[in-house]
Each structure stands twice: as structure tokens, then as C-alpha cells.
Nucleic acid binder design. Structure first.
Lengths: 113, 113
DNA sequence: CGACCATAGTCAGTCTGTCGATATATATCG
DNA sequence: CGATATATATCGACAGACTGACTATGGTCG
């Protein structure tokens, strides 16, 4: 197992694609929803991430359509992308479990809020 | 709320300090435990993170001792460091909740796992 | 004695993601 | 018509984290 070290925007892209194919621009909105408006994906970040993830085989293109004269290029998560996302999720879960346990000890020991 | 964008080693340092002061070298071991041996902190990473976190007021030095003729320099989490770690934890929790929900849909919708 | 562990650091370099700016095209709203 | 929103995409620059290699000292083990 290699080091993943995924940043938030990248995580958002994968997560947004986890429930079905989407086109690039739509991901910007999805990332906003996923994070309660915290993360506003920038286009530069988005397409760079998409390229990178494709070259790593985590995301694949999934057809194009023309809607109202505007091109939409779709992307989907590959199986390997889904697996990576799952791994990342469990890794994070483990980390936060530990962090919370320790924070609880700290709160118990030192009171205050 | 600003963008934190913390990487794993940094997170580990904060989490390891959350339940009480520790000296630098001890953090290497702690990080290993915290992550089931996944993360092996490098000294360079460690002291760089410690410096950075101190300059951000998230970690403070907490005295020194000489044990068996060897110097130990202790560090502790500041209140503001603890708050940041809490924020980071909730942020991650939200992210993984969403990601898991979407991964579930994907599994339900389609093929294999 | 020499090797090795514990403990403290420093520093130059690398990597890589993210950002901001820029460009292009169409549809729509006022 | 011009602005704005949808949609695509590229590119250079920047910041920051991480790594690897190095130095140093005091124990301990063989």
C-alpha cells in the first residue's frame, strides 16, 4: 500500500463521482454540496485533478452529450478509483477515531472549553 | 473558516499531542501507533512540523527534562491547536459521511465490490 | 572499542497540488 | 448588444509539506 495523501479538492472529485457519472462543471456544484458550501472547486483545480486521476486510472471518461448546444463531457469513477476512495475513507476514519479519543482525554483532564 | 489543508504527518503530530505533552522523538512512536504502523514520521518532517505549528500558535513548548543524561524537550497542544484539531476532525467526518453515502449508492446501483 | 539506540536538531531540494488568469463557445436575460 | 451563466480547457507560478542526508551527544550492549 502506497502513500495516498489526498487533498480535499481531490477527495471531493472522487466522492462526487462515487454515485454516478457527472460532467466536469457539475462537479463544482457537487463539491459545494458535499461540503456544505465549504469547498468551492476552482476550474483549474478541477480539470487538473481530472487529468491526473484519469492518468492514474481512478477516473475514466464516460461519454459526451450536447445539451442545449453545449458540450458535456462525462466522467465516472473506475472500480479502482472506488476502491481507493474506500481505502482513503477507512484510513481517515481510523485517524479521526484516534484523534477524538485523545481529544476526549484532554477535555477530561483539563476541563475548560 | 479558512482552508486548513493538513497533511497526514501534521495531523498525526497534533493528534499525538492531544492527550498530553510529549517530547519530539516520542511523537515518532506515537504516530506509528495512531496509524497502526502506517505512518512512520521522519525526523525532518517532525521538527519542521513542530516549528511550523509553533509559529502558528497551535503547539507550544512545555519544558525540558534530562532523563538518563539525555535531553528531552516537551511540546504540548495549545487550546487553539486543540480547537483546530477538533475542526479538522469534524470537517473530515462530514466528508467521509458524504463519501460513504455515495459509495453505498454506487454499490447498490451496480456491480460487485 | 565500535555499533547502535535515544534524542535533539538543520537544511537544501523536490514534488505536486492548488490557484489565478486566460481563452473559447453557446444560450439566455435585460 | 453586452453581461452572465453554463461548459470546456490550459498554463505558469506559488506555497507548503515532505523527504533524505547530515551533524551531535550520551548512554548501552557485545
Amino acid at each position: 500500500m502506497k502513500n495516498v495523501d489526498m487533498r480535499e479538492p481531490t477527495f471531493m472529485v472522487l466522492a462526487a463521482l462515487a454515485n454516478g457519472r457527472k460532467h466536469g462543471y457539475a462537479l463544482i456544484g457537487e463539491a459545494g454540496e458535499l461540503s456544505n458550501g465549504r469547498v468551492k472547486l476552482k476550474v483549474g483545480t478541477l480539470y487538473a485533478a481530472l487529468d491526473r486521476l484519469q492518468s492514474q486510472g481512478l477516473v475514466a471518461s464516460a461519454g459526451e452529450e450536447v445539451i442545449d448546444g453545449r458540450l458535456r463531457r462525462y466522467y465516472e469513477l473506475t472500480d479502482s478509483g472506488a476502491m481507493l476512495l474506500e481505502d482513503e475513507v477507512s484510513r481517515l476514519e481510523g485517524n479521526i477515531r484516534q484523534a477524538k479519543a485523545r481529544l476526549r482525554l484532554r477535555a477530561a483532564a483539563g476541563r475548560v472549553s
